[in-house]
Computed example of a mutant assay.
Amino acid sequence: MKRRTFLGSIAATGVGAAIAPGLIAPATAQAATWKKRVTGADLDTNSRWQVAGTDLGIPYVLENGSIGYLFGDTFNTPWPEQPNNDWRSPVMLRSAIHPGAAGGIVFDSAAKVAGNGRAPEIMHNGHNGIGIDGLWEVTVIPNDGISFPETGRQLVSYMSIENWNSAGPNGPQWKSRYAGLAYTDNGNDFVRTNLKWFNSGDNLDPFQMWTMQRDGDWVYVFSVRSGRQDGPMMLRRVPWERMFSPEAYEGWGWNGSNWGWGRPCSPILNGRFGEPSVRRLEDGTWAMAYLNCATGNIVTRTAAGPDQVWTGEKVQVTFAQEPALYGGFIHPWSTKAANGLHLMVSKWTRDPAGHSTAYHVSQYAGSL
């Protein structure tokens, strides 16, 4: 099974990402510190749910108010290359524990599991074969989740991966075939819809990796290209009740004199982005995190609103702290208080021969 190449080691060049005019600001020193590792073959994620080697851990609020954590390619072995590894993706663990508690995040259940037992993938995955839509699919990778207490429904945005090995200006990078939405009305069984936002043949479509945040009647969708490559970040919004209606998505665009909704999307930022993560905090602050693939650091920005000016990057976790790091997903219970920011950070390291030596997720705490 071929796997995606992460860019943490490549990014050590220190070349800065291109930032939209007016948003350039010097990066601050690292702010976040390691709190705990939350997945691994030696932890209860394996003994209880057979979640040993895994990545991402994207946290979002469930319809009952607790937190679901979406994991990508998951194995019952410490890392992917080992035989009989029980490959699954996506997998969801849950927790009602506040990440700021003394013991950090502690998982209490898994989706589709009554008590303890193997956590299965929550939606169909083609696994290096023909998927449910008749298209070749290497795997399914979650990008974000969102829930609607009014209806009890949850949605997960995901990528259907076409290959891990597309050539590009920054080296090998993965190519998604399309971005999609899946839903569940029972909190466990996610159904992949027929909605597809197809990637372009040259892998440059900027609507492939989504992060979603609701504010009132609208869901705001921030998206970038697949593969952690150079490109724009785009912003759209859609009424929360119409997320299955592509025509209802409005772009945030510049017409040459001002910004406005209902236009073709214009880049709100430019850079070499990893997966974006955006959350609206309780005090109304909007926070964004992503891996800056040019510097190898996980950084954050803040804004007064989704369509307002974003601050310059603040470095939270460096590649020196966590070699081969990626992710950097904001916990929705984060705050602007000191050490009130909680990030899920993935690590996948290999030895010189290419064998994995670590593949897991850790919790970091920092400040915005």
Rank of each mutant, 00 (worst) to 15 (best):
K2S: 11
K2L: 13
R4V: 15
R4Y: 05
L7C: 00
L7I: 07
S9Y: 09
A11F: 06
V15Q: 14
P21W: 11
L23P: 02
I24Y: 09
I24L: 11
A25R: 05
A25D: 10
P26K: 09
P26G: 08
T28A: 04
A29Q: 13
A29L: 11
A32G: 13
T33R: 14
T33Y: 09
T39C: 09
T39Y: 07
G40I: 08
T45E: 06
A52Q: 03
T54I: 09
L56F: 09
G57Y: 08
Y69A: 03
T74P: 02
F75S: 05
T77R: 13
W79Q: 07
P83I: 02
R88G: 03
S89D: 03
P90S: 00
P90T: 01
V91I: 05
V91R: 07
V91N: 08
R94C: 05
A101F: 02
A102F: 08
G103F: 05
G103T: 08
I105S: 04
V106H: 13
S109A: 12
A110M: 10
A114T: 15
N116F: 09
N116T: 15
G117Y: 12
A119V: 06
P120K: 03
N125H: 04
G126L: 08
G129Y: 12
I130P: 13
W136S: 06
E137T: 12
V138R: 14
V140H: 01
V140K: 03
N143L: 03
T151I: 02
V156T: 12
N163F: 05
P172E: 10
P172G: 06
W174S: 11
R177Q: 08
Y183M: 07
T184K: 05
T184A: 07
N188D: 15
V191H: 13
N194R: 14
L195F: 14
L195W: 15
W197I: 14
W197T: 09
P206M: 04
F207P: 00
M209Y: 10
W210E: 07
Q213S: 14
R214S: 11
D215A: 07
G216R: 07
Y220D: 01
V224A: 00
R225H: 10
G227S: 09
R228D: 02
P232Q: 06
R236E: 12
R237M: 04
R237I: 07
F244I: 02
S245M: 12
Y249Q: 02
G253M: 14
S257A: 14
N258E: 15
C265V: 15
L269R: 15
L269G: 00
P276D: 11
S277G: 01
V278L: 06
L281A: 10
E282A: 13
G284A: 08
L291G: 13
N292T: 02
I298H: 11
A303G: 04
G305L: 02
P306R: 00
P306S: 03
T311A: 06
T318N: 04
P323N: 09
L325M: 12
F329K: 06
I330L: 13
H331D: 15
H331Y: 04
S334K: 00
L343A: 00
L343T: 14
K347M: 09
T349S: 14
T349R: 02
D351A: 08
A353H: 11
H355N: 14
T357C: 12
T357W: 01
Y364Q: 07
